[in-house]
Simulated scan of single mutants.
Amino acid sequence: MSESPSLDGLRVLAHPVRLRILSLLTGAAMSAAEAARELGETQANISYHLRRLHEAGLLDVVEEIRIRGGMAKRYRHDPESGMRFGSKNPQDEQLLAATMAEELKRRSESRAVGPRGSMTDAEMWVDRETWEQALEHARELSRLLHAAARPPRTRGTIPVSATVSMFEMTKP
């Protein structure tokens, strides 16, 4: 029996391989074997993580295909599925943030030299209206990139990284 969706969802997300799987399966539906080849992981490892992500409601089975006499499921990630997860436990959020930070470190090792990009870091006080506008822009950025995601190495595409974490802080 799985845990509650919010708690289980955050814990499931707080694993670097699972973050990579979700990113990969936003652009294309894949089986465990296909995703394992793409990510350079074992099929058994990816299969385990796919099951956990599916149980948490973050992946959909979009088709079943026959391969060498057996059946393989192809999974796809709907980026909107993560919107229902939240936690009142700061440790869960911190675990997810730490995992995202580690994934950002891994991705930054592949940063192309020269091309344009954007980095920002801020801890500041702003009015409520500005904060709400910034959140909506971040959500729109996420929708834009996820809607445009394509399978790896699709002609005319480039690999990109986007990590955004915005949250209201407690007052000191």
Score class of each variant (00 low, 15 high):
Ser2Val: 10
Ser2Arg: 13
Ser2Gly: 10
Pro5Tyr: 00
Ser6Ile: 03
Leu7Asp: 12
Asp8Gln: 09
Asp8Trp: 02
Gly9Trp: 05
Val12Cys: 06
Ala14Gln: 03
Ala14Phe: 00
Pro16Arg: 01
Arg18Cys: 05
Ile21Asp: 01
Ile21Phe: 00
Leu24Gln: 04
Leu25Ala: 10
Gly27Phe: 06
Ala28Gln: 13
Ala29Phe: 10
Met30Tyr: 04
Ser31Gln: 08
Ala36His: 00
Ala36Gly: 01
Arg37Phe: 04
Glu38Phe: 05
Leu39Pro: 02
Gly40Cys: 03
Gly40Lys: 03
Gly40Leu: 02
Thr42Ser: 04
Gln43Ser: 01
Ser47Thr: 00
His49Ala: 01
Arg51Val: 06
Arg52Asp: 02
Gly57Arg: 06
Asp60Cys: 10
Val61Phe: 15
Val62Ile: 04
Ile65Ala: 10
Arg66Asn: 14
Arg68Lys: 07
Ala72Asn: 12
Arg74Leu: 06
Tyr75Ile: 15
His77Arg: 14
Gly82Phe: 08
Arg84Ala: 14
Phe85Gln: 03
Phe85Leu: 12
Gly86Arg: 15
Ser87Gln: 06
Lys88Asn: 09
Leu96Met: 06
Leu96Thr: 02
Ala97Glu: 08
Lys105Asp: 02
Arg107Met: 05
Glu109Tyr: 03
Ala112Lys: 08
Val113Phe: 11
Val113His: 12
Pro115Glu: 14
Pro115Tyr: 10
Gly117Glu: 03
Met119Glu: 05
Met119Phe: 08
Thr120Ser: 13
Asp121Val: 11
Met124Cys: 12
Arg128Ala: 13
Glu129Lys: 14
Glu132Lys: 11
Glu132Phe: 03
Glu132Asn: 07
Glu136Val: 03
His137Ile: 08
Ser142Glu: 07
Leu144Lys: 12
His146Arg: 07
His146Pro: 00
Ala147Lys: 05
Ala148Thr: 04
Ala148Leu: 05
Ala149Trp: 03
Arg153Lys: 14
Gly156Leu: 05
Gly156Thr: 07
Val160Leu: 09
Ala162Lys: 02
Ala162Asp: 13
Glu168Met: 11
Glu168Thr: 11
Met169Pro: 11
Met169Asn: 08
Lys171Val: 15
Pro172Tyr: 15
Pro172Gln: 11
